[in-house]
């Protein structure tokens, strides 16, 4: 697989952690530990309700939680939470919209043409009405809106759940570009193949703990 080769080039075991999570816990899970290096993608699977989304929310500090989370060695508690979230960007499964037009949801629409193109979105989509958008368009615009802010870490919750294979491929290409630029990604996916394509490490969230996913015949998914 082409993805595997670029994966090996991207990461080496000796890289220091960009994002480091120590004993992160909420009333619903934990304590969990995880570290993500620059340019590394950690793919997490788990049953519905296992707490994957809540885990990402806790990293982004969106819900009350305990534990130590650092970016480049800097504890998130030493900076305002809004600043933290700009660097450690959460992309939820359902994107939120608050204004009528697409463009109003971007801080700046000047330099997003490349992003839109990479996501197979027309450049004039910024003038469209949000209520006219399809689920897939919303999902991709959510990605574009987040990437435009150039975060250091991406916490992606099912980023391609509503997308067809062609567009999923575009999104994955964009994710690989981000990884190549040194962005770290924590990816939640239900799709084991996507986990294998993108994940430098694959983990399972089970019974409130993160475990390394083994290549069982089931998870390996034989190609026809």
């Amino acid at each position: 697989m082409a993805g595997d080769k670029s994966k090996q080039n991207r990461t080496s075991q000796s890289q220091p952690a960009l994002l480091k999570i120590n004993n992160l816990k909420t009333p619903l899970f934990g304590p969990l530990n995880l570290s993500v290096a620059a340019g590394e993608c950690v793919a997490i699977r788990g049953k519905s309700g296992a707490g994957k989304s809540i885990f990402l929310r806790a990293i982004a500090d969106l819900d009350p939680n305990e534990g130590e989370v650092t970016l480049n060695g800097k504890n998130r508690n030493t900076m305002p939470a809004n600043e933290w979230r700009r660097k450690v960007m959460l992309l939820p499964a359902e994107s939120g919209w608050w204004a009528d037009r697409v463009g109003e949801h971007f801080e700046n629409t000047d330099n997003i043409d490349d992003l839109l193109e990479a996501l197979s979105l027309p450049a004039d989509i910024v003038t469209w009405l949000v209520r006219r958008l399809s689920t897939g368009e919303r999902q991709r615009l959510g990605i574009a809106r987040a990437l435009a802010l150039k975060p250091k870490i991406l916490l992606m919750d099912e980023p391609t759940a509503a997308l067809d294979p062609q567009v999923t491929n575009n999104v994955e290409t964009l994710m690989r570009q981000q990884l190549a630029n040194g962005v770290g990604i924590v990816l939640i996916t239900h799709d084991p193949d996507q986990g294998r394509r993108l994940g430098d490490r694959r983990l399972l969230l089970e019974d409130g703990a993160l475990v390394v996913e083994r290549n069982t015949p089931d998870s390996e998914g034989q190609q026809p």
């Binding site: 939820p92 939120g96 919209w97 608050w98 801080e107």
Partner: peptide, 18 residues
Amino acid sequence: RERTAIEARLMLGMTRWQ
């Protein structure tokens, strides 16, 4: 009702007041 929208704004790095 607008939780998703408000949290989207928070996720994009806005303060609670923004």
